[in-house]
Amino acid sequence: MILTIIGCQNPDKNEKQLAQQVFGKWKGENDSLGVELNYEQFKKWNDLLERTEKIVCNDSLPKYTLKTENEIKTIYFRNPCWEDFACILIKQKNVIEIHNDTINKNDENFFPLDSLENVLKRDLENNGKNPKLSDNPEKLLIYISYDNKNEFKNLPNTLNQLTETYKRITNKTDIKILLNDKIDLVPPPPPMNEIEINE
């Protein structure tokens, strides 16, 4: 009887329980479909993107688990399976891009990562007032990209900062994050009256 009582005691009762949070998961998605992306296994950003694509095209959900001192965060990515789509129309104003840890809005405004709260807040609270910012919070997408030549060791820190900031502003965890190639916009041609015609 004494052995039974000792055996039932919790030996780790002083050990701190970590809070668990899930970010970016669609409603009704099954947790068992999640496939862990271990970014440390990849030397190039494009290799990580290819792995993400394979996961999505196999009807699974790419995710990354981030452990901090106080919590375990599971972050799901919203990448589509490009094999199923010729193209997807996304308005640029509904996108915030973080490329090499620099925030970019409309390829016009560039901000350091510590400006994340202000940039996110402007888009999340815009509700269509400013035509250069997001139509509404439901449509806002966050693209994260790195150059192949740049190491992406800072990816966990960027994801942690992004999820913390989003939750602080919205009190939600439904953030839409896509891992992506850098989107280089081609500037429109100049108006006809500015083009010189050589005869």
Rank of each mutant, 00 (worst) to 15 (best):
D107H: 12
C87V: 15
Q92P: 08
N106P: 14
N70D: 11
T74K: 12
F77N: 02
N106Y: 09
K105Q: 06
T102R: 13
K67W: 06
V119E: 00
E108N: 13
N127Q: 04
I90M: 11
L116F: 05
L89V: 12
L66K: 03
E125W: 11
E108V: 13
P131S: 10
L89D: 15
G128I: 11
K105Y: 03
E97N: 08
E117F: 04
F85H: 14
N106I: 06
C87M: 13
E83G: 01
H99S: 11
V119M: 06
I96L: 05
N94G: 04
V119Q: 01
L124G: 03
D107A: 15
K121W: 07
D123G: 08
N100F: 08
R78P: 05
V95E: 05
I98Y: 05
F77Q: 01
D107F: 15
L61H: 04
S115H: 15
F77C: 01
I96W: 02
I88W: 06
L120I: 02
L113V: 05
W82K: 14
K129N: 12
I88E: 09
T74H: 04
D84L: 15
N126T: 04
I96G: 02
L66V: 08
I96S: 00
E97A: 03
K63H: 13
A86R: 14
N106A: 10
N70C: 02
C87P: 05
I90H: 12
K73E: 00
P112E: 03
I75M: 00
L66R: 07
K129H: 12
N109A: 04
L113T: 02
E125Y: 12
Y64K: 11
T102I: 09
N109I: 10
L124Y: 02
T74N: 07
I103W: 02
I90V: 11
P80Q: 06
D114S: 11
F77G: 01
D101F: 13
F111M: 01
L89S: 13
N127W: 14
D123E: 07
D114P: 01
H99T: 09
K121Y: 09
H99Q: 10
Y64R: 05
P62L: 01
N126P: 04
K129V: 14
I96T: 01
K73M: 03
L113E: 03
F77Y: 01
E108Y: 13
N130T: 08
G128K: 01
L124D: 00
S115A: 09
L116D: 00
I96K: 03
E108T: 13
I90T: 07
T65E: 03
K67L: 15
V95C: 05
N106K: 13
N118F: 15
K91N: 15
N109W: 11
Q92H: 14
V95H: 09
Q92E: 12
D114W: 08
P62R: 00
L124F: 02
N106G: 05
C81T: 08
C87Y: 15
N127H: 12
G128T: 04
S115F: 14
N70W: 13
N79G: 07
I75E: 00
N100L: 09
T102M: 11
I98W: 00
N118V: 12
I103H: 03
N104R: 11
K121M: 06
E69F: 08
I72W: 06
K91P: 10
I98Q: 01
T74L: 04
T102K: 07
Y76C: 05
I88T: 07
I96N: 04
D101K: 11
E125A: 13
I90R: 04
P62K: 01
H99G: 03
K91C: 14
N106M: 12
V119I: 10
K129F: 12
